[in-house]
């Protein structure tokens, strides 16, 4: 197969066990690795790059086995957390480093082209500590590409960048991946980054692979609360949490619809109204918070805490303490952890 194939990757870091992890990526495909803190995302990247032993793993690139090779022979453009820029070298010194190691005669020409392409020409004599976060990211990208890698591993791209710098770099990485169509694995903490770059998604939880597939599959079968929150759900309930609110009619209705990992309610699909009727539930407003395109209403349905989005609209805002009604169309509900993700709305 052309591309990256990973089968049965297992590794250990102290008491933490990761795996087994399996996935495959075609040239130019980007896999976004998701998961809560401590789930093993960085460990996975370090094992793929060859810094952690994974004796049982099969890792191959375009049919060539990599797992037995040391890190320096894996032809990987690895950008670790914190970028790993050489602090004692200038921008030029950093980008030329992989070519110096290989004693490449065309080092200077190649590096000049890369610096120009990534807008680093004017910064080549600066040291990493004098650069902004976005500039440092671009240096890391240029250096990784200078090594002429055949695949890319990127731990938390855009960490610590402001939104403008992040979007600029997302565009730059997107266009760079178009010019260099390499199998790429990124650890993504932010949904915006994951969804703009990733075509495949791998979700880790406590070292175990809980999901691997496309965004559509992730939307249809979110495996757990983390995935639901990553997809934008702000109302996520475990089965135990639903049990804890016996007085709530909504909780009682949701209980049989919940999957093994619970149920999630999409904000954007929940409707707010005042009329009583079948398919509507009481909602007591507690607080109102502004959000980018309207208001976030925090309250509860007979004790079950809920958040509801109200788009910006003319008319007075309800006051805290007001009793309202909500309706839940079927597309608002997501079963977590079981097959057939979308649940039916309670009638």
């Amino acid at each position: 197969m052309n591309g990256l194939l990973v089968r049965g990757l297992e590794t250990q870091l102290g008491n933490f066990l990761l795996g087994p992890v399996d996935f495959e990526l075609r040239p130019g495909e980007v896999l976004a690795v998701l998961g809560p803190s401590g789930s093993g995302k960085t460990t996975l990247l370090r094992a793929l790059a060859g810094f952690l032993p994974a004796p049982a793993a099969s890792i191959s690139l375009d049919g060539r086995p990599l797992a037995i090779l040391p890190p320096e022979e894996r032809a990987v453009g690895y950008v670790p957390q914190g970028l790993g820029l050489l602090p004692h070298r200038t921008v030029l010194g950093n980008v030329v480093y992989p070519l110096e190691i290989r004693s490449r005669p065309d080092a200077r020409t190649r590096v000049q082209t890369l610096l120009k392409d990534l807008g680093l020409d004017g910064l080549k004599d600066r040291y990493p500590r004098t650069l902004s976060g976005g500039e440092r990211q671009r240096v890391a990208m240029a250096r990784a590409l200078a090594a002429e890698p055949r695949w890319l591993l990127w731990d938390e791209p855009y960490a610590g960048l402001d939104l403008g710098a992040r979007d600029e770099l997302l565009d730059l990485l997107g266009s760079t991946l178009e010019t260099h169509p390499l199998p790429t694995v990124i650890v993504a903490h932010e949904p915006a980054v994951a969804f703009s770059l990733g075509r495949q998604f791998l979700l880790l939880q406590a070292g175990r692979q809980r999901f691997q597939g496309s965004l559509e599959e992730l939307r249809r079968h979110p495996p757990n609360a983390f995935a639901a929150r990553f997809l934008g759900c702000q109302n996520v309930f475990s089965r135990e949490e639903l049990e804890r609110h016996p007085a709530s009619r909504l909780a009682r209705e949701l209980r049989p619809l919940a999957g093994p990992e619970g149920i999630a309610l999409f904000l954007r699909d929940m409707r707010l109204g005042t009329g009583e009727g079948p398919g509507t539930w009481p909602f007591t407003l507690r607080t109102l918070l502004p959000d980018p395109d309207g208001w976030l209403l925090r309250g509860d349905s007979e004790g079950l805490p809920l958040r509801i989005h109200r788009p910006e609209a003319p008319g007075p805002l309800p006051a805290p303490g007001t009793g309202l009604r909500i309706s839940l169309p079927s597309e608002a509900l997501l079963r977590l952890g079981g097959p057939g993700a979308t649940a039916h709305a309670p009638e």
């Binding site: 370090r46 790059a49 060859g50 810094f51 040391p70 890190p71 320096e72 894996r74 990987v76 453009g77 690895y78 950008v79 670790p80 970028l83 790993g84 820029l85 050489l86 480093y97 992989p98 190691i101 290989r102 250096r143 990784a144 090594a147 591993l153």
Partner: peptide, 8 residues
């Protein structure tokens, strides 16, 4: 680690 992955 970055230096090693770059071929050193």
């Amino acid at each position: 680690e970055a230096a090693r992955s770059l071929g050193a």
